[in-house]
């Protein structure tokens, strides 16, 4: 019993530590959204924005450790990139399209090719 209370206190301390790493306004998007992820890239000493666009197929973790996975098809080959939600290197995430999805992880898209990859659009 007392152990449980201690554990909760530990989690509170972890949250406290993570506070400094969290973005005040984390990017808003949902599973199935097609997004443009603007990442800052350092080339030499010049900073440049690179855009990776694709479908958000998964979100995992919590707090400063939260990550999301974006999948897109490049030259017929599936490419997935995993980003930390709160990374300072992510400038912004722009939602270009939303889709009707019924699960939290869209891993079934990995088994699909061609037209089957498309998701039904959700109108707001």
């Amino acid at each position: 019993m007392t152990n449980g209370a201690k554990q909760r206190k530990g989690q509170d301390l972890i949250r406290l530590v993570e506070q400094s790493s969290l973005k005040p306004e984390p990017p808003q998007f949902e599973i199935g959204d097609t997004v443009d992820v603007h990442t800052k890239i350092l080339e030499g000493d010049k900073e440049r924005i690179q855009i990776f666009s694709g479908v958000v197929i998964a979100r995992s973790g919590a707090g400063a450790k939260e990550m999301f996975v974006v999948r897109r098809i490049v030259a017929g080959e599936g490419v997935e990139r995993k980003f930390p939600v709160h990374s300072p290197r992510i400038d912004k995430v722009v939602v270009t399209r939303s889709a009707v999805v019924r699960r939290a992880k869209l891993y079934y898209l990995r088994d699909r090719v061609g037209k089957a990859v498309r998701l039904k659009e959700r109108r707001k």
Partner: peptide
């Protein structure tokens, strides 16, 4: 030992830390 998490440094790198 409180636990582990990660924090971002000035360069934007995620640092694994034990609290």
């Amino acid at each position: 030992k409180v636990g582990m998490t990660q924090i971002f440094n000035e360069a934007g790198e995620a640092i694994p830390v034990t609290v």
